[in-house]
Amino acid sequence: MKKLIIGSIFVIATLAPNAVSADTITISGTITDKEGQPVSKCDVFFNKEAWITDDSVHVQCDKNGRYSAEIKAGHYNSFYVCDEEEYGKTALEFWGWNLNFTKNQTLDAAFDTLEVYSLSTWASNGGSNSVFGSFRPMSLKKPVYRNLELNGKTIAVMDITPSVDMHSIAGSIDDTPLKLVNYNWTYEKVANCSGAPDDISTENGCYMPMIIAQFEKPQMAAGQHTFKIRLTDAETGNIGEGITHFTSNSKNLGF
C-alpha cells in the first residue's frame, strides 16, 4: 500500500565506523524479481515504530540487487522493498511485518506486481496441528466495487485481488515449505471507500478481501522463526511475497 514519501524524514543507513554502537546490527541481502533475477533498482525501508518516523531507515540496492543497512537492534513494525518510481505503475511491494531484528542477518526479498499485505501468523495450540496466515492479497488491476450482504448488513467491497487457487499460496517457515491444507476468504474493513461509484452503498463501511490460509504445522525448535507467504496469480504467474516473525516454545506451540 502506497505511502507519502518525504525524503527528509528518512535516516540514510550509511554510518561511519565510529558511529556504529553495540546495539547496531547489519541487515543485508539481495532483491530479485519473480524469475529470481536480481533487480537493478530498488528502495529498502525499515520502520521501527510505525509507517515512516524519525527512526525509519532507507537504503537503496545496487545494480546487482544487493543492499546493506545498519539499523538499531529490536522490534520493527515493518520492512518493505519496492521501486519507488515504479510503485503502482508496474510493481508493488515486498512486505515484512512485526519483525524482531536481534542480530546480523541476511534477508533476501522478491517483488513484482502482487502484494502480500498485513501478513500475520499464529499456530493452533490445541484445535489442530496447524499454522495459519492471514493477509490481504492485492494486485495492480483496476479496483472492482460491489455491495455484499455480510452478517446481516450491506457492505461495500473494493476488490483488487489477483486470481487465486490452491496452487497460488506457498507458505514456508525458515525456508522449509509448508503443506497448504485450505484457504478461505474473509473481508477486512478499511479506512474509506475512495473511488467507489455512486451506485455502491458505503453506509456500512468499505472492506477489502482477505485470505486466511491453513498449513500443516511442522516440528519446530524453540525460538524465533520466519513465516513467509509467496503468492502467485493463477492466471498471469505474477508474484508477491511477505514475511513475519513468530516464536515457538519447546512444546511446538506458537505465540
Rank of each mutant, 00 (worst) to 15 (best):
L107W: 15
G74N: 03
N147Y: 10
F46Q: 09
S56K: 09
F45D: 07
N77D: 13
T106C: 01
T53R: 03
T106P: 01
A213K: 05
K189P: 06
F135H: 05
I27M: 13
N18P: 01
D62Q: 04
D55K: 14
G88F: 03
D233G: 03
S194D: 13
T106N: 08
G7M: 09
D175C: 00
N147T: 11
L119H: 11
F94S: 05
A91T: 15
T24P: 02
I71F: 11
W95E: 07
F215D: 10
G126I: 08
L148P: 05
M166G: 10
V131S: 03
D83R: 07
E93H: 13
N98M: 01
N18S: 12
D165A: 11
T53N: 03
H225F: 02
L114Q: 02
T161M: 14
C206P: 07
E84P: 00
K179G: 05
L253P: 07
S68E: 15
E188Y: 12
A222C: 01
Q37A: 11
H167C: 02
T26L: 12
Q219I: 08
I9K: 14
D54V: 04
N18G: 01
D108H: 03
I155H: 07
G254S: 10
S40I: 07
S128D: 15
T24R: 14
I211H: 15
N192P: 01
Y187A: 04
E70C: 06
E188P: 01
E235Y: 05
G74V: 00
S248N: 05
P197Y: 09
S194K: 13
I6R: 13
N18F: 10
S139Q: 13
A91M: 10
Y87P: 00
A156W: 05
Y187R: 08
L99V: 03
A234W: 10
N249R: 08
C82D: 14
L114P: 04
